[in-house]
């Protein structure tokens, strides 16, 4: 578990304090969770505990909201976040196969992170690059016209570049 940075938690506390002053303060849980994800990249458990206390909401309720929306990450994302497009165009062009290969190569399922914290895998609806279907986005970069061979190589390259560091 990574440590919570003081500056970030202070910022979140201020955000909650402001929100609680507004009308229906505690119904703003979703925006607090958004803020949390923006600050930490995911929803760390200690921070959810903190939110529970500050907003007087049960943790079971916060957990319910956090797991209801796919948008929220519940584990720290890996260094490389692979978003695989499962939109219509990509799907037609074999995204499912690409996904299976990624899952096999990394040993994780969609929504999970590898044990070495190098890769996370998440689904995407449409990345707006249908001309290059099937595509994945790794962090901010698009990789298109994928085949099962190409994606394997791509993952291998990332692994290698890490080993050299």
């Amino acid at each position: 578990m990574q440590t919570i940075e003081a500056g970030k938690i202070e910022e979140l506390r201020e955000f909650i304090a402001t929100i609680l002053k507004s009308d229906y303060g505690d119904s703003n849980l979703i925006s607090v969770l958004h803020k949390t994800q923006e600050l930490f990249g995911y929803l760390p458990r200690e921070v959810m505990d903190e939110i529970a206390q500050r907003m007087s909401l049960p943790t079971a309720h916060i957990w319910g909201v956090a797991t209801f929306y796919h948008y929220f990450n519940l584990t720290a994302p890996g260094k490389y976040v692979i978003s695989i497009c499962l939109g219509t165009a990509c799907y037609v062009k074999g995204a499912a196969e690409i996904l299976t290969v990624i899952e096999q190569e990394l040993g994780i399922k969609v929504g999970e992170t590898t044990e070495d914290k190098l890769f996370s895998l998440q689904p995407a609806r449409c990345l707006g690059a249908c001309g290059l279907a099937p595509v994945v986005m790794i962090n901010d970069k698009i990789y298109g016209d994928l085949t099962t061979v190409k994606i394997k190589k791509l993952i291998m390259d990332f692994r290698k570049s890490e080993q050299h560091k």
Partner: peptide, 10 residues
């Protein structure tokens, strides 16, 4: 829940 207290010590 203990209202409005923090749990994280920084």
């Amino acid at each position: 829940i203990i209202h409005n207290q923090g749990v994280i010590k920084v």
